[in-house]
Design a protein around this nucleic acid. Structure first.
Lengths: 217, 217
DNA sequence: GTCAAATGTTTTGTATACAAGAATGGCAGT
DNA sequence: ACTGCCATTCTTGTATACAAAACATTTGAC
């Protein structure tokens, strides 16, 4: 199944925006980008359409598309929704999860611990992401799973920054453990609470996040 | 701010799909539709792109796009997510809602009651929708509000069907009251529970509806 | 010198033309 | 009669050409 060029370009553009290749508010010039990718405007516009709908850029009719990096408020809102979505996954998983899936969660968290001990930040990140994806899946609701993945993907770059905070990995690990324990006990409310708490960005942490963002500019 | 033709076409196509103008699995022929709307393939393809991303149709590369009506399982999953999203709105609103907003909710529900007494099904539907949109807004999280509206819009046609069930309007009204009461008391957990229940019931009712429809055939 | 109108340029939105892959139908061979 | 292969045709994907709207610049009047 061959993907079309527009798909590839959309992915590349998305990566570039998330990587900060384009500044906030920068205009994405169609002809310029078309030349850069070696295609005509048609597939490029198709790619832009996708970015518009995913919310990464904004279109002003007859004027062009501009990258729209989320501001502090919007970011906080998205994290809040992410926390609630993951809480929902945990709540549903509490009564639906299988022993095998529970074991997989434990296994993944063990690998997180291992990566932490080795000081392997990238490895930790990968296993952490796996943990969350497993949780989404364990909700037993594939639509929910999809929505979670979508939002997580959007928040990825900001989440990654958070990991830099000192001691975050160890704390995160403990929180994963709490979620697992609640799931094992079949306690839906506790599982939801722990998962929400794990993702929620609050007070001081948020300030740090904003500060890192500014520092990264 | 002038909308472009592609936007209008996208809306019309969406309405047609939701109205059942196209059967499930039907192919949307580009040239045919372009002729029908009196435009070239370019804006039409743009409109199709939007439908693809909103999940109403599915694209098979090099083969075309096909309408993808959600099956019973997917539908139940979506209702479940809707219930949880609205529960989240209620939870957040419980600690954030203003007296004025609370009054607006009460007001809207009163109009629901009025419509019910008049046997005005359409009026009830409109005020009910307004009630839910107010709740989304009262979450104080505009990103969440947007996600809720998006999913609600997707579920609209199915939601509408279930109003036919006997006694549904009265029950719905009572449930709205319970949500309002919890919000007034500032009880986040209760508000979440009531809102979740209110929407979840719709999912269950949907089962009944499916059964009735099949029985009626 | 400044403001404004007009023209020219750039850029988006749309139409059409072209290329390539997939479906279809016929033909031959068994 | 049935199956496999080839050619034709149809459809999608991409490039280019055209139209119209926004932006910039220049020129003219006060």
């Amino acid at each position: 199944m061959e993907r079309k060029r527009a798909d590839i370009i959309a992915d590349e553009l998305e990566a570039m925006i998330l990587d900060g290749t384009f500044a906030d508010g920068a205009r994405l010039d169609e002809v310029q980008l078309a030349a850069r990718f070696g295609v005509s405007r048609t597939p490029l516009r198709e790619a832009l359409q996708r970015l518009i709908l995913s919310g990464l850029v904004e279109q002003q009719p007859r004027r062009g598309v501009f990258v729209k990096q989320p501001g502090p408020v919007e970011l906080l809102e998205m994290f809040e929704v992410m926390a609630e979505l993951e809480a929902t996954c945990a709540r549903l998983a509490a009564s639906r999860i299988s022993d095998k899936a529970l074991a997989a969660l434990r296994d993944t968290n063990a690998r997180c611990a291992e990566a932490m001990e080795n000081g392997d930040s990238d490895g930790y990140y990968a296993e952490n992401e796996r943990f969350h994806h497993l949780l989404y899946h364990d909700s037993g609701n594939s639509f929910l799973e999809g929505e979670c993945r979508r939002l997580q993907r959007r928040l990825k770059p900001f989440r990654r920054l958070q990991l830099r905070l000192r001691g975050r990995m160890r704390q995160s690990l403990t929180e994963h453990g709490a979620v697992i324990a609640a799931l094992a006990a079949g306690d839906a409310d506790a599982a939801a609470r722990e998962a929400r708490q794990h993702v929620a960005v609050q007070g001081e942490k948020f300030h740090h996040l904003i500060a890192s963002l500014k520092a990264a500019e």
